[in-house]
Amino acid sequence: MKAIAQDSYGIADGLEVRDIARPVPRDDEVLVQVRAAGVDPSILHLMTGKPYIARLALGLRKPRNPVRGWDLAGVVESVGAKVTRFEPGQEIFGVGDGSLAQYACAKADKLAPKPANFTFEQAAVLPVSGVTAYQALSGKARPKPGQKVLVIGASGGVGTYAMQIAVSCEADVTAVCGPGKADFVRALGASDVIDYASGEITDAKQLFDIILDAAGNRPLSLLRRVLAPKGVLVMAGGEGGGDWIGGMGRQLGGYALSPFLGQTLHSLVARVRHKDLMTLRNLAEAGTIAPVIDRTYPLVEAAAAIKHLQAGHPRGKIVVAV
């Protein structure tokens, strides 16, 4: 089968199209014939091995699995001995290590039936970003009608889903995005827009009940200035902060401060689970959420798709059609 692989951590130019053996599923896994794969910031961490702390899971000196990719949608080819939830021929979506390939293995508890009204390309860009947005706006941060919600990184993958979820809860949403994207986020339901190139979140001159930071580069002190006294901050993105721990330093700072404040400062490392994928499936089939696809690339151009992501701030999601 053809796959996008790398033998050592590095840049997108190090990715190669290779012919490799088809993987064999373990007892709790499903072999998926991949029809489409999503490209999101998590793939950059897989590729670069940064922050270095991530290598504890990915492989210390080189990737344990040389094939890149995470999000996927496709058709069940075969199932492991202990898998009862799926059967060959079933259309599914979820995550599997090495999705930028014609076939990939995925744990059964990280898959769900594909939304009936979604194409494979649409379903492939839903798992990681969709689950992140949903988990961020659940629990203490669940929007209520009329609440003020600030979404930072509103035009990105997580942001576009979060906008739709917050609007469906009848919240009043302010979007933070880059130049030229105001109309785009307004179409998703934003009542107000802040262009980060010409303004700052303090320009809104209001306090927010919920802040979802999916961009990860503002200091806690600035975020707290616009957070209501009993408000909830969810940090779902963590860029910067150095090569060793990345944005985790800011998130750890939030955990340390939160017990002493009326505000809740929460960090999110999303976990893709079957039950949350089923929730997304239901939201998708009800028309509550839908992906915004910026560009589609063929498998052999996966490196170009990743470079487009690195170039900065696509509108919505990037997908690779296999």
Rank of each mutant, 00 (worst) to 15 (best):
residue 216 G to E: 08
residue 252 L to V: 07
residue 243 D to Y: 02
residue 168 S to Y: 07
residue 318 I to M: 02
residue 209 D to A: 00
residue 20 I to N: 13
residue 200 E to N: 15
residue 254 G to Q: 06
residue 274 H to Q: 11
residue 157 G to T: 05
residue 321 A to V: 10
residue 193 V to R: 05
residue 310 Q to G: 08
residue 319 V to C: 08
residue 270 A to M: 03
residue 190 A to R: 00
residue 147 Q to D: 04
residue 172 D to H: 11
residue 158 V to I: 09
residue 22 R to F: 15
residue 275 K to M: 07
residue 307 K to E: 01
residue 21 A to E: 15
residue 158 V to D: 04
residue 299 L to T: 07
residue 250 R to P: 15
residue 151 V to G: 00
residue 108 A to K: 06
residue 240 G to F: 10
residue 261 L to K: 14
residue 4 I to C: 05
residue 203 D to S: 05
residue 37 A to K: 11
residue 230 K to W: 14
residue 20 I to Q: 12
residue 278 M to I: 15
residue 12 A to L: 10
residue 119 T to Y: 12
residue 286 A to K: 11
residue 16 E to Y: 13
residue 55 R to E: 06
residue 66 P to R: 00
residue 156 G to L: 11
residue 280 L to S: 03
residue 280 L to W: 05
residue 50 K to F: 12
residue 20 I to L: 06
residue 175 A to L: 12
residue 230 K to G: 12
residue 72 L to H: 14
residue 153 G to M: 04
residue 28 D to R: 05
residue 140 K to V: 01
residue 29 E to H: 03
residue 10 G to H: 15
residue 189 G to S: 07
residue 184 F to E: 14
residue 213 D to C: 04
residue 322 V to A: 01
residue 129 S to F: 06
residue 25 P to V: 00
residue 99 S to I: 02
residue 116 A to F: 07
residue 201 I to S: 03
residue 215 A to D: 09
residue 280 L to G: 00
residue 180 G to P: 05
residue 234 V to E: 13
residue 89 G to Y: 10
residue 305 A to C: 13
residue 203 D to K: 08
residue 239 E to V: 13
residue 171 A to C: 15
residue 87 E to T: 13
residue 298 P to K: 03
residue 210 I to Q: 00
residue 58 L to M: 11
residue 245 I to Q: 01
residue 148 K to C: 01
residue 210 I to H: 14
residue 15 L to V: 13
residue 21 A to S: 15
residue 121 E to P: 11
residue 66 P to E: 02
residue 274 H to R: 11
residue 161 Y to K: 05
residue 158 V to P: 03
residue 3 A to Y: 07
residue 217 N to T: 11
residue 139 G to R: 07
residue 9 Y to T: 04
residue 128 V to A: 04
residue 247 G to A: 10
residue 301 E to K: 12
residue 45 H to K: 13
residue 106 A to P: 03
residue 107 K to E: 08
residue 247 G to Y: 02
residue 60 L to M: 12
residue 45 H to W: 07
residue 116 A to R: 12
residue 213 D to R: 04
residue 221 S to N: 12
residue 173 V to R: 01
residue 174 T to W: 02
residue 6 Q to R: 06
residue 312 G to R: 15
residue 296 T to G: 08
residue 257 L to Q: 01
residue 271 R to C: 04
residue 213 D to H: 11
residue 311 A to V: 08
residue 82 K to M: 01
residue 41 P to G: 13
residue 81 A to S: 08
residue 13 D to V: 05
residue 170 E to N: 01
residue 146 G to E: 02
residue 279 T to Q: 06
residue 29 E to M: 05
residue 304 A to S: 09
residue 103 Y to G: 04
residue 217 N to H: 12
residue 100 L to Y: 15
residue 30 V to G: 00
residue 76 V to Q: 01
residue 180 G to E: 04
residue 259 P to V: 07
residue 86 F to E: 06
residue 298 P to M: 06
residue 27 D to A: 10
residue 9 Y to H: 09
residue 301 E to P: 08
residue 49 G to N: 05
residue 60 L to G: 05
residue 10 G to L: 11
